[in-house]
């Protein structure tokens, strides 16, 4: 199982079968399938959440997945429950799951959204957010997916960045603070609606 690390994601399914047909009985680590399948209980079938609050995790980049798990584990990132769950997995197991979820497609659940606010949010996104959260927040190299992510989760995350529960890099903090100073709570609401409206 440990050997999966060096195998390109696209080949993983085929190659793994060969390893497992040789020997699984002595393996000390559960298959990535076994490790990852319980995540669906909260994060949805195939990592696509139907909400109302738990985020989708399929299609997150490996780097972002690993950073989230590592910071939950260390306590740097505060969560309600993930800090307790993340500690249940070794680095090796976490890496395997990161690779797996990164190979899957980010799925978007249809959410209620306000078209007027979403339109305003689209403009604000272009002005303040797009330089990091490219392609309407859908592209996410090493950062979270915003476009189509569960709205309540985005609300929580933004609130945590502003309250200091989650820390921001200097450049990001400047942008976020400038955005809030200029557009306040209504502006935040609008960009969240824009992300939630994406199909």
């Amino acid at each position: 199982m440990l050997r999966i690390k060096s195998i390109p994601a696209a080949l993983a399914v085929g190659v793994l079968a060969i390893f497992t047909s040789i020997n699984t009985a002595s393996a000390e680590m559960a298959s990535v399938q076994t490790l990852a399948s319980p995540c669906a209980g909260c994060h949805g079938v195939n990592g696509v959440s139907v909400g109302p609050a738990t985020p989708s995790i399929a299609g997150l980049t490996e780097a972002y997945f690993l950073d989230s798990m590592a910071t939950y584990k260390s306590g740097k990132r505060k969560g309600t429950i993930m800090s307790r769950i993340a500690k249940g997995y070794t680095d090796e197991e976490t890496k395997a799951m990161a690779k797996l979820f990164a190979s899957m497609k980010f799925g978007r659940t249809t959410q209620m959204s306000d078209a007027g606010l979403a339109a305003k949010g689209k403009e604000l996104h272009a002005e303040f957010c797009d330089s990091c959260h490219e392609q309407d927040g859908r592209k996410a190299d090493g950062i979270g997916v915003l476009g189509g992510q569960i709205a309540a989760y985005l609300d929580y995350t933004i609130a945590d960045f502003y309250s200091g529960v989650r820390t921001m890099e200097k450049r990001k903090a400047q942008k976020m603070n400038a955005f809030k100073a200029e557009h306040g709570a209504d502006g935040i609401k609008a960009v969240v609606q824009f992300y939630a409206s994406q199909k």
Binding site: A12, G14, A17, T20, G47
Partner: peptide, 18 residues
């Protein structure tokens, strides 16, 4: 197919390829 994506595990794979 989605489970295959999620899995890559022995059982799923054996059903797929062999």
């Amino acid at each position: 197919r989605s489970f295959m994506q999620l899995s890559g595990g022995a059982a799923a794979a054996s059903a797929l390829i062999g």
